[in-house]
Design a protein around this nucleic acid. Sequence first.
DNA 1: TTATCATGTTTATATCATAAACTTATTTAC
DNA 2: GTAAATAAGTTTATGATATAAACATGATAA
Lengths: 102, 102
Amino acid sequence: MKGSVPTPELNRLLHEPARLRTLVQLAAVTKADFTWLLGQTGLSRGNLSVQMSKLADAGMVTVEKRFHNNRPQTLFALTESGRQALVEYKQNMQLILDGIPE
Amino acid sequence: MKGSVPTPELNRLLHEPARLRTLVQLAAVTKADFTWLLGQTGLSRGNLSVQMSKLADAGMVTVEKRFHNNRPQTLFALTESGRQALVEYKQNMQLILDGIPE
DNA sequence: TTATCATGTTTATATCATAAACTTATTTAC
DNA sequence: GTAAATAAGTTTATGATATAAACATGATAA
């Protein structure tokens, strides 16, 4: 068994850095609106929109549209299954990282 | 600064799971041949070939071709800059993971 | 009432991961 | 001795996907 290094599967939906970043942000708050996420992640509007749609389609986040100061506002929140997926991703990635010396 | 979560850049070359896996394997040994990596990673020959070429082009691994038992054999080894890149990736990813509760 | 800004969404493109098909050389079977 | 099968990779074709550019819509400012 020499040189045996674990290589668990990584959820590709979460693995993409643009989405991983937004999910980590969402994990740190109860709710976040589109514009705030824009600033935190540095993504373009188009990119953030597409990524959030994918996360919503997969049930990782909820989407709530409303008006705030007569402006449309979109609020996102991590779902329970999103939180679970994120924790699982963390565990798997941690196993991989542990195989790297230093 | 409420809700501030660090989001360092991740080296996309290393971030791709197929390549991350082979690099982690290479980090655990001094040298590895193509067929052995095939078994460890579960990648197809074509995929492994492409990924190793990219890693070689980027200077992350060295490639040594020789004959062994009258068969061609390709040996790979992590370079020093490859090792550094891997450690840096580990540190950055660790920062991101630390932002995830549990 | 025209222009500008704010907030997103839709599309078009360009990259890239992956497997299928191909190459070349070597044994093994007949 | 030649045809089939095995070994070790590489090249290509395609399908997915990340990303920005273009678009849409409504509100405020000039």
